[in-house]
Design a protein around this nucleic acid. Structure first.
Length: 576
DNA sequence: GCCGTTTTCGGCCCGACTGTTTTCAGTCG
């Protein structure tokens, strides 16, 4: 099993946790955590870089030491230094850090004084009332630890962005109903458009913070209160989602919005920018000594630092500060740029609506075209189409097209890629279609090389238009199958076909790093809902958020084109 | 452990809340 970036990142996180418990230099610990994040985000596998003897220290945050550790991990599967560190402490001690309220100092104390080495021994000690006896800890902390252990699966939970949206909307309405509230914003990873959300961060501009807190905590869907201070409160909703609220005065609203939108890495980089000017940036504003330079709006803060306003989706410290300083940020794609959808299902396979219903719904949404792309015969569980049923379907599409003015239904198929990379329908019928989507729905357990070559063969088929959901992942449920996506991107570029960004909230496949790589390599992306009913049209917004995080502009996205332009693009993907 | 228009040393983001130790450390974001 090769060492993946995710494995390297996990090793660095582990090293950081262990060093923290040992009380090591906090900046050294931060360097490990920073490196873990950098490595995790890379679109290229570092194992390949090591094999090619590329200079790893060119990566930001990776110096000689960490570069050597990466090479060692890739070449030997292990790092002597990290292993030594691991052996100096009990094997499961870092599990204790997952308990809210337990940080490195307390874990160290629990281990030193009570020989607590893992979650079971922590639970035992808490139940025996031993923890309250320690200096600096008390009865309340002990109870908090016990309830956290019991709720552990819940507290570490993340939610799909799409799952959280209705809860966020409802709570926003609740806050706006408070007479003391002047303005409400949702910040955090939600505003950055991340695919999953850990908690919701609400920000309110109001003069009477206490009244707003009271109103906030009186919310009917509140399960329990986690914190309640002068300007900050925190609760858990019955749905399990944690919500934090911060109340700030008008003059700090922009600074607070920026601060609580994050990400952490972006904030640190921004504060450094401020520091270089001998200024200070915090959630109250941008300050020159005692004097506020900016704070009421985000725009003013960026402007004071001689930067363009950075869209929240880009705030991950992946080059956006430099681009903003050069005024070269991309003009990110917007939902209104989308003019059609090239991946949708009907009742002919596993969809819920007829072709006409799907088409009328798309037209009402302002689209100019829709591709009906039902499953192919191999996918029997989805009632996949064989050649003769597909021919019948094409007649129905012709009929509906004749009735609909100013709208075009494209004839398509989502054809299964078979084990050997060939397609699940004969060429004779594929040649009659406008859109041929190739998809993996089986054989997820091939090696990365086998899977990659299988898919590349499917891309080589002369009728292929694009590859759907390229990695097959289901967020929070199923990891991607092993596949070399950069190689697929390079191959799609050579072949002249597209890759899909599947907008289904559980897929969002391609991820943002691969979107960015596809953009750099010049491979067009098509953002599709993969709708199985008319209700799924809303998913386009989730896909757009992901595309924006991948730095995509209107030009990189196929289905921002007019009907006429896209017809040419579809023809150009054909090799026959 | 990283980094450099303060460049090979000496910095490294900053503030709120909680519980408990009555003046603050630890945790969190």
């Amino acid at each position: 099993m090769p060492m993946l970036n995710a494995d390297i990142a996990r090793q660095f996180e582990l090293a950081a946790d262990l060093l923290e418990i040992k009380g090591d230099n906090p900046f050294r610990i931060r360097a490990y955590r920073n490196a873990a994040r950098i490595v995790e985000d890379l679109p290229h596998e570092l194992a390949g870089w090591v094999a090619d003897e590329k200079d790893l220290t060119e990566l930001p945050g990776i110096g000689k030491d960490l570069a050597d550790k990466i090479s060692e991990l890739v070449n030997t599967g292990t790092s002597v230094a990290i292993d030594t560190l691991r052996q100096s402490l009990p094997p499961h001690i870092t599990d204790l850090l997952t308990i809210p309220g337990l940080g490195p100092k307390r874990v160290k104390k629990l281990y030193a004084e009570l020989k607590i080495t893992d979650l079971p021994s922590l639970k035992q000690a808490a139940e025996a009332g031993q923890i309250r006896e320690l200096a600096g800890l008390g009865e309340k902390t002990e109870k908090q630890i016990l309830s956290a252990i019991e709720a552990q699966t819940d507290s570490s939970r993340r939610f799909l962005r799409a799952t959280v949206i209705p809860y966020a909307d409802a709570l926003q309405t609740h806050l706006q109903a408070c007479a003391r509230v002047h303005r409400v914003a949702i910040a955090g990873s939600y505003r950055r458009g991340r695919e999953t959300i850990g908690d919701l961060d609400f920000l309110v501009w109001a003069d009477d913070a206490a009244a707003v807190m009271e109103h906030f905590l009186a919310y009917e869907d509140r399960q329990d209160t986690l914190a309640h201070g002068d300007t900050k409160s925190s609760m858990r909703l019955k749905a399990g989602i944690q919500v934090d609220l911060r109340v700030v005065p008008k003059e700090s609203f922009g600074a607070a919005l920026h601060y609580f939108t994050g990400s952490k890495a972006h904030n640190i980089a921004m504060r450094k920018e401020a520091q270089q000017r001998k200024w200070k940036l915090n959630e109250y504003g941008l300050f020159d000594g005692e004097n506020a330079v900016a704070g009421e709006t985000e725009e003013a803060i960026f402007a004071a630092l001689e930067m363009e306003w950075i869209p929240p989706e880009l705030r991950e410290n992946r080059g956006e500060l430099a681009a903003a300083a050069e005024h070269s940020l991309p003009k990110l794609i917007e939902l209104d740029d989308i003019r059609g959808n090239l991946h949708a299902h009907s009742r002919w396979s596993d969809g819920k609506n007829t072709i006409e219903e799907m088409a009328r719904s798309a037209k009402e949404a302002g689209y100019e075209y829709l591709a009906i792309t039902d499953h192919s015969q191999r996918l029997t569980v989805a009632n996949g189409l064989n050649e003769s049923r597909l021919r019948e379907q094409l007649e129905e599409i012709d009929a509906v097209n004749q009735q609909m003015k100013g709208f075009r239904i494209f004839k398509g198929i989502e054809v299964d890629i078979l084990a050997d990379g060939s397609l699940d329908l004969p060429d004779s019928i594929l040649r009659e279609l406008d859109v041929v989507i190739v998809s993996v729905h089986s054989k997820f357990n091939l090696s990365a090389q086998e899977q990659t070559e299988r898919i590349m063969r499917a891309l080589d088929h002369p009728c292929t238009t694009f590859l759907a959901h390229p990695t097959g992942r289901l967020l929070l449920a199923r990891p991607p199958y092993p596949v070399d996506v950069p190689r697929l991107i390079a191959h799609a570029c050579e072949r002249g076909c597209f890759l899909e960004l599947n907008a289904n909230p559980q897929r969002l496949d391609l991820n943002e790093s691969y979107c960015q790589l596809a953009k750099e390599e010049g491979v067009p992306i098509v953002i599709n809902t993969d709708a199985h009913s008319t209700h799924d049209a809303v998913h386009m917004a989730t896909g757009i958020a992901q595309a924006r995080r991948g730095w995509l502009t209107k030009d990189h996205v196929v289905n921002t084109r007019s009907l006429k332009a896209i017809q040419k693009m579809l023809r150009d993907t054909r090799l026959d």
